[in-house]
């Protein structure tokens, strides 16, 4: 369970503090046990049905907004460190 949690934390970019790890792992394990009931269902149908009760989407015409976007949006976004961009997996 600890290894699984570490892997999931890595994928989700989260970390657990040493103090909360044990408690978290216990509750998480309860949860996994709780949803495991779903695995007992043997549904072999290959098709995975739609989630949303609308059978086709409405698309938008190719008409851009003419006015600049309302509401205040910052124009400058700064982030990260170049040397580290490649670090870690995608």
């Amino acid at each position: 369970m600890k290894e699984l949690l570490d892997h999931l934390c890595q994928l989700a970019r989260l970390e657990l503090s040493p103090g909360e790890r044990e408690e978290f792992a216990r509750k998480f394990s309860d949860l996994v046990g709780f949803v495991d009931a779903i695995k007992e269902l043997r549904d072999e149908s290959r098709e995975i049905p739609l989630q949303v009760p609308k059978e086709r989407m409405d698309t938008a015409p190719d008409e851009p907004r003419e006015e600049p976007c309302k509401g205040e949006l910052p124009r400058s976004y700064r982030a990260g460190h170049i040397g580290d961009l490649e670090e870690g997996e995608v």
Partner: peptide, 14 residues
């Protein structure tokens, strides 16, 4: 789009 800055940070253009 990412713009790389000399100070090592990156700027983002959406």
């Amino acid at each position: 789009k990412i713009f790389y800055q000399d100070d090592g940070s990156i700027l983002l253009d959406y």
